[in-house]
């Protein structure tokens, strides 16, 4: 189990560089192409929205960006490192150190407190527990939930749960924040608050943020839009 330190983002090296990424599945005798020759580059500090209708392949693109899925062909350079050849444990280590995830359905552990949920990615990193706790409490304060640290997810509103998820995405200080329809289960006002927080994280902490959405209002926060249609970037 090798876990060499992931290379840090630098201005010259883009955080994400995809070259001719294709993804296809064999369904019976028919090969179905979900992504075709996607080539794109996202520089450090960008706020990008990936947009497209259902079935366009944007979810698959997100999974590949998030190292949860492997492309059929093509190269993916994450912070300059070609991750195509890494094994599962190495991919886990990269996800843990380099990427912060925000999901549509929040995905908090129901029996754990807000703070413990924030600390979760940190548990799989080497940060000492007391530093992790300090950082978790600071992040909860940053998302406005300092007084909710001991609450269980069921005691929090949807917006509050997504804030916990945001704090969790930041705990390991990743270079890239990947958000999959972060406002999909929130009313429009709460959704705006979450997007404002993401924009704040982007501008203040300089984190690269990629939001996948089909919603124009959500995509409007991004400074760059990538449209996916029929598996191609258009």
């Amino acid at each position: 189990m090798k876990t060499p330190a992931a290379p840090a983002a630098s201005p010259e090296i883009p955080v994400v560089r995809l070259e001719d990424i294709s993804k296809s599945y064999l369904l019976g005798d028919v090969r179905s192409h979900v992504l075709r020759d996607v080539t794109l580059s996202i520089a450090g500090g960008e706020f990008t929205a990936i947009q497209g209708p259902s079935g366009s392949g944007k979810s698959t693109l997100l999974h590949i960006l998030g190292l949860l899925d492997r492309p059929t062909s093509g190269d993916y350079f994450l912070c300059g490192e070609n991750v195509a050849s890494l094994d599962d444990d190495a991919l886990s280590a990269r996800r843990n150190a380099t990427i912060g995830f925000v999901f549509q359905s929040f995905y908090l552990i129901p029996y754990a407190s807000a703070l413990d949920n924030v600390l979760l990615p940190g548990m799989y990193a080497d940060t000492p527990k007391h530093l992790l706790r300090e950082r978790g409490l600071a992040l909860l304060e940053q998302v406005g939930l300092a007084d909710r640290a001991g609450h269980k997810p069921s005691q929090l509103s949807g917006g509050q749960q997504q804030r916990v998820a945001l704090a969790r995405a930041l705990i390991n200080n990743p270079d890239l924040i990947l958000a999959d329809e972060p406002t999909g289960q929130l009313d429009s006002k709460t959704g705006e608050e979450i997007m404002a927080l993401l924009a704040d994280i982007n501008t203040r902490a300089g984190k690269t943020v990629v939001v996948v959405t089909h919603d124009d209002a959500t995509a409007a926060y991004a400074r760059r839009r990538i449209l996916v249609h029929d598996g191609r970037v258009v």
């Binding site: 886990s92 280590a93 996800r95 843990n96 995905y107 129901p110 979760l120 799989y124 990193a125």
Partner: peptide, 16 residues
């Protein structure tokens, strides 16, 4: 399942 998937997505190696 959801918790396990989440842990793996957030960087837990399989053995953990």
């Amino acid at each position: 399942r959801e918790e396990i998937g989440l842990r793996k997505a957030l960087g837990a190696p399989g053995w953990a």
